[in-house]
């Protein structure tokens, strides 16, 4: 709370004190540009983190509740085996619904590889049955044994084989996005520290004069800290706005084929990037303050 009060007082500023430090073009541009670039990257990292989070949730929730039965049989037996399999599934505890995919649904599944208007009816492709589970789900070993006895052409795929690695991969992507955001914050702090040190070195004479007239280190530091915090805030705001516009301009889920459930923000998640500029200002505040006090200590 005290720190927040000090930050607000800092942003309100002391115009007289600010004037004591002359504006330096190089460090001003460096701070503005690096804050803008880092905020832009942070928006993308945040979007990626949220998208992979949604992906992991969807895969883990939806795929955990479904499985697929594939029936490979000669054309004249296909219909019979499909009906038998559906009947068997309906009487299996833990199965809520068993539904053979329609020709249109199977065509849609194959469309990415074979293109539109594939005559699936004339091709020897297996019939797929979607199984939706309920409660604790079914017993896969028992169901496989029954299928082997009653529907010899049926192969049960409970998705367990590939669901786990996918969920794990999505989780790691999310972790990677968070690590990226941490690195972005550290890089921002490093760049601003560098710029602040350059400004302090360039203004050694100003510091000498201010000390001569009785300025305390915190007073001198404050003039630099306020300037750098405001620059980081302005730069990060510009970068965040650009980043959000870029995310807004990304193709929609449908156009992109639903591969990553949409990389953009959804719903209230659009508010999250708005936290980036104040966070950048906070990082800048601490980085500059640390750099200023250390540098002033060394210059004494």
């Amino acid at each position: 709370m005290e720190m927040l009060r000090r930050m607000l007082a800092l942003l309100a500023g002391d115009p007289q004190a600010d004037r004591a430090v002359p504006p330096t073009g190089f460090t001003a541009r460096l701070t503005l540009m690096s804050a803008a670039a880092m905020a832009l990257l942070a928006v993308f990292a945040l979007a990626m983190s949220l998208a992979t989070g949604r992906l992991a949730d969807r895969w883990s929730e939806e795929l955990a509740r479904t499985s697929t039965l594939r029936i490979s049989a000669p054309a004249d037996q296909m219909q019979g085996q499909t009906v038998a399999a559906v009947e068997l599934l309906r009487t299996t505890p833990g199965v809520a619904e068993a539904r053979p995919l329609t020709a249109e649904e199977q065509r849609a599944l194959l469309e990415p590889w074979f293109g539109p208007d594939l005559p699936v009816e004339t091709l020897p492709i297996p019939q797929l049955i979607e199984i939706i589970e309920e409660g604790d789900g079914y017993d896969p070993a028992g169901l496989r044994a029954r299928l082997q006895a009653e529907v010899p052409g049926a192969i049960l795929d409970d998705h367990g084989r590939w669901r786990e690695p996918l969920v794990q991969a999505a989780g790691r992507l999310r972790l990677l996005a968070w690590v990226s955001m941490g690195l972005i914050a550290l890089t921002t702090a490093a760049m601003i520290t560098l710029a602040a040190n350059a400004a302090l070195s360039a203004n050694a004479q100003v510091i000498r004069v201010m000390r001569l007239v009785g300025a305390r280190d915190v007073y001198i530091a404050r003039a630099f800290v306020r300037r750098f915090t405001l620059r980081a805030l302005i730069g990060a705001t510009a970068g965040t706005v650009l980043g959000m516009l870029a995310v807004l301009a990304l193709p929609s889920t449908d156009v992109a084929g639903g591969f990553l459930t949409g990389l953009g923000f959804q719903g209230w998640h659009w508010l999250l990037p708005l936290t980036i500029p104040p966070l950048a200002a906070l990082v800048s505040f601490f980085a500059t303050r640390q750099a200023a006090l250390r540098s002033l200590g060394e210059q004494s």
């Binding site: 000390r211 007239v213 009785g214």
Partner: peptide, 9 residues
């Protein structure tokens, strides 16, 4: 240093 600054006034 800050005490010196104070006295320097």
């Amino acid at each position: 240093r800050d005490e010196v600054a104070q006295l320097r006034r």
